[in-house]
């Protein structure tokens, strides 16, 4: 059942992005930025947390989960050391994703040439 929810949620988010892309002048860069902001905004009142427990991996794959993980890491830091912890813990959960993206991009760019 969780697979069906994953399929529907991830597909729904992608479809909204595609509809915005087709019907407005916004570029993919605008849309991904917008979705990250939406993801962190949904987490003010724990809404995205509930979606993640209900939907599972389907909610962690779209870029909205990036905003969710940023605010979540900030909250873990804040519970330990107050307001300054918000900045300390901000990248805790997304660090693995950003680090691996940078590392793999650099390594692959050493070995491969651009193809046209």
């Amino acid at each position: 059942m969780i697979y069906i929810y994953s399929f529907l949620f991830a597909g729904f988010i992608s479809m909204i992005g595609q509809l915005i892309l087709d019907n407005t002048k916004l570029t993919p860069g605008h849309i991904t930025s917008l979705f990250v902001i939406i993801g962190s905004a949904l987490d003010i009142f724990n809404i995205y947390d509930k979606i993640v427990t209900y939907v599972g991996g389907g909610a962690l794959v779209p870029i909205t989960s990036f905003g969710h993980l940023l605010i979540h890491g900030g909250m873990v830091g804040a519970s330990q050391s107050g307001f300054i912890g918000l900045a300390m813990g901000m990248f805790d959960l997304t660090a693995s994703g950003i680090t691996s993206a940078i590392f793999f991009s650099f390594i692959f760019s050493l070995f491969f040439r651009p193809k046209d």
Binding site: S6, F7, G11, S14, M15, L19, D22, A59
Partner: peptide, 19 residues
């Protein structure tokens, strides 16, 4: 929109399967 829905959903299912 339909293609984006199907492909995006498939990536979501792959994510859940990997977890």
């Amino acid at each position: 929109a339909v293609i984006a829905f199907l492909i995006g959903g498939t990536v979501g299912v792959i994510g859940e399967l990997l977890i």
